[in-house]
Design a binder for these strands. Structure first.
Length: 237
DNA sequence: GCGACAG
DNA sequence: ATCTTGTCGC
């Protein structure tokens, strides 16, 4: 599929943290929430990035799965060099460029993109999932493994139980139990989805393990490619 | 000012 | 995220 933007539609790619935060404040207003039936998605893409020690290079992966079969129907990987350092809250500026390239390399356009990180559950309400959603103008949601902003009471032990993730006076996401007896994952809206639909989809995508299958596939693929290419950045499908 | 801080 | 073996437990 084809992406329309490669960076902040309002200007140059951020050169430092202050620029990046300003860009997030501008773009945050572009996020939309839509009350859709995410669970009716027939194809979902999982996105993830793996890094080489020393930050010499990275591998971004996009894997498309059919729903509800959860079979792999397409995938793409991109090897590149980090353009931005890791700074909590500015995570997207590290991963968005290579992820957009990986998404463009797909031959299938998925109905929803599942990102490894957050969307609205972010200091400026513009985490990775929202950032990608706005640039691609596609439905996205974020699934984090540890809370970033806000706090949530532990959900009941049964799979499917959840509790709201609250930051100040806002509900920015929810802690969702995808497996009983295992720590919950944190779901938040990326773009053009609603929290109920996003949570419902995540539960369908994680029938057995804590993390959604699309993300597990993207994680494994990016890790495998990283291991097979010890150095020299380039791209491949 | 201090601590915390997605991957 | 990554550096890293075995080990305890279901």
């Amino acid at each position: 599929m084809r992406a329309t933007f490669h960076g902040d539609p309002a200007g140059e790619y951020p050169r430092d943290p202050d620029d990046a935060r300003a860009a997030q404040r501008r773009m945050a207003g572009l996020v939309r929430e839509e009350p859709v039936e995410c669970s009716r998605a027939s194809t979902v893409a999982g996105l993830d990035v793996s890094y080489a020690a020393g930050d010499t290079h990275l591998v971004a992966a996009a894997v498309v799965l059919s729903v509800p079969e959860l079979g792999v129907v397409d995938s793409a990987t991109v090897v590149a060099e980090p353009r931005f350092p890791y700074v909590p809250g500015l995570f997207a500026f590290r991963e968005v460029p290579p992820l957009l390239e990986a998404v463009e390399a797909l031959s299938v356009t998925p109905d929803v993109f599942v990102c490894d990180g957050f969307g609205l559950a972010h200091p400026r309400r513009f985490g990775l999932a929202s950032h990608l959603g706005v640039l691609l103008e596609r439905r996205t949601l974020g699934v984090g493994k540890s809370p970033f902003v806000g706090r949530a009471d532990p959900p009941a032990d049964a799979r499917g139980s959840w509790s709201p993730l609250v930051d100040g006076d806002e509900v920015v996401g929810r802690a969702l139990r995808t497996r009983s007896g295992v720590r919950p994952v944190y779901v938040s809206i990326g773009h053009r989805v609603d929290l109920d639909g996003a949570s419902d989809l995540v539960l369908r995508l994680a029938p057995r393990f804590r993390s959604p299958e699309p993300i597990r596939h993207a994680d494994r693929l990016s890790r495998d490619v990283l291991a097979s290419r010890p150095s020299s950045p380039s791209s491949s499908a």
